[in-house]
Design a binder for these strands. Structure first.
Ligand SMILES: [Zn+2]
Ligand SMILES: [Zn+2]
Ligand SMILES: [Zn+2]
Ligand SMILES: [Zn+2]
Lengths: 166, 166
DNA sequence: AAATTTGAGTTATAATATAACAAATCCTCT
DNA sequence: AGAGGATTTGTTATATTATAACTCAAATTT
C-alpha cells in the first residue's frame, strides 16, 4: 500500500495548509458571529491533518484523547456545523469527510478520489458545473446541490503501479 | 407531499418500462451466460416498479411475501449481481438503488433526483463526461468510476410548488 | 441575576451493509 | 443417471454509519 504522496493533494508543507484552514475558519466564524468551539475546532483540525477523507468514527479516538466526550453525536454535531458553514465536505461515495479547499463560497465541490492511496482532491469545476446546469435546463430541473465524486488513480499512484509492473 | 408524476421520469405507461427492462435483462443474462435467478429477477422487478430509488431494506418485505428469505444478505447479493451486470445503479447520496435506463453499456450514470417527490432520472451525459475527462487529464488523473448525483426539484414539483404559493 | 438560547454529555437505537459458514441447487463430465 | 465441483441461497451474527431523545452546562440576551 502506497502511503505518502505530495503533489496530488498538497504540493509541499501540509502544516501550512492546516494553519491556513484553521485561520480562515476562525475568521469566517468571527464574521458570521458563530462559535468555533473547542470540539469543532479540533474536528476541523483532525480532518485537515489527514490527506485522506476521514470517517466520523475515525475521529472519535482523538476526541477522547483530547478529553472530549467521544460518543458519535459529538462528532456528528461538529461535522454538521462545519458542513453548514462550508468548512468541510462529506463524500457520499466514501461516507467520509474532508476539509474544503476554498471555504466561504457556498458550493458543492467536485472531488477526485484515488482508490490506491485514498487521498482526495477538491477542484473548482466551473466548466463542469456549467455543463451540468445546461443538462438541468434541458430537463427544466432546478438544481439544489450536486454530488460529483470521481474515483480513479492519482498521478503518483499511476507511476508507482507502472514501476512495480516493470 | 406530492406523490404521482409522469413526465420527469417516465412519459406514460410504466408497466411498459418494467416489461422492457426485464426483457432486456433476461436477454443480457442469456448472452453473458449468467443466471437471472428468481430472487434476482424479483429484485430487479421491484426496483423498476418504483419511480423512486429504493433502499435495500425496502425490498425485504416483498421478498418475504414472495417466499424468499428476507435477510439482508439476500437482497444485497441480488443488488450486487445486478450492479455488476449494469442493470441497476446505486445512488450514493441516497443509499438507494434504481434500474438502469440503458443497460448493456458500461457506465457510471448521471442522476437527477427530485427532493420533493423523490423520483430520479438517469441521463446519458456525454458532454458532462467529456468535461470531467478534461479536468482529469489536467490533473493526470485516471478515472475508474464517476458518481454524479444532482439534487433539486423536478419540473412537476416546481409547478406544484408555484401553484400552492399562488 | 433571571431568562433564553445554544452547545455538549449521555444513553439508546435506527439504518445500512457485510462476514462467515451451512445447505441447496445447478452444471459438467463421465 | 451419478459423482464432483462450482455457484447460489439460507442463516446467524455482527460491523459500520448515523440519529433520537433527554439532560446538563455554558454562553448570550434581557
Ligand atoms: Zn469546497
Ligand atoms: Zn494515489
Ligand atoms: Zn445506467
Ligand atoms: Zn418531483
Amino acid at each position: 500500500m502506497p502511503e505518502s504522496h505530495q503533489a496530488f493533494v498538497c504540493s509541499s508543507d501540509h502544516q501550512h495548509c492546516i494553519d491556513e484552514a484553521l485561520t480562515a475558519a476562525k475568521q469566517l466564524c468571527r464574521d458570521k458571529q458563530l462559535r468555533l468551539t473547542p470540539v469543532r475546532e479540533l474536528v476541523l483540525r483532525l480532518i485537515w491533518q489527514s490527506h485522506k477523507p476521514l470517517g466520523a468514527y475515525d475521529l472519535l479516538p482523538a476526541l477522547a484523547k483530547a478529553g472530549f466526550n467521544s460518543a458519535p453525536p459529538t462528532v456528528y454535531r461538529a461535522l454538521e456545523f462545519l458542513q453548514e458553514q462550508g468548512l468541510v465536505h462529506r463524500l457520499a461515495s466514501l461516507n467520509a469527510y474532508m476539509g474544503c479547499n476554498h471555504p466561504g463560497t457556498s458550493h458543492s465541490g467536485c472531488f477526485f478520489i484515488c482508490e490506491e492511496c485514498h487521498q482526495a482532491l477538491e477542484i473548482e469545476a466551473s466548466p463542469l458545473q456549467t455543463t451540468l446546469q445546461r443538462h438541468a435546463e434541458e430537463l427544466n430541473f432546478s438544481i439544489t446541490r450536486e454530488t460529483i465524486e470521481v474515483l480513479g488513480v492519482c498521478p503518483e499512484c499511476q507511476q508507482q503501479k507502472a514501476q512495480s509492473h516493470a
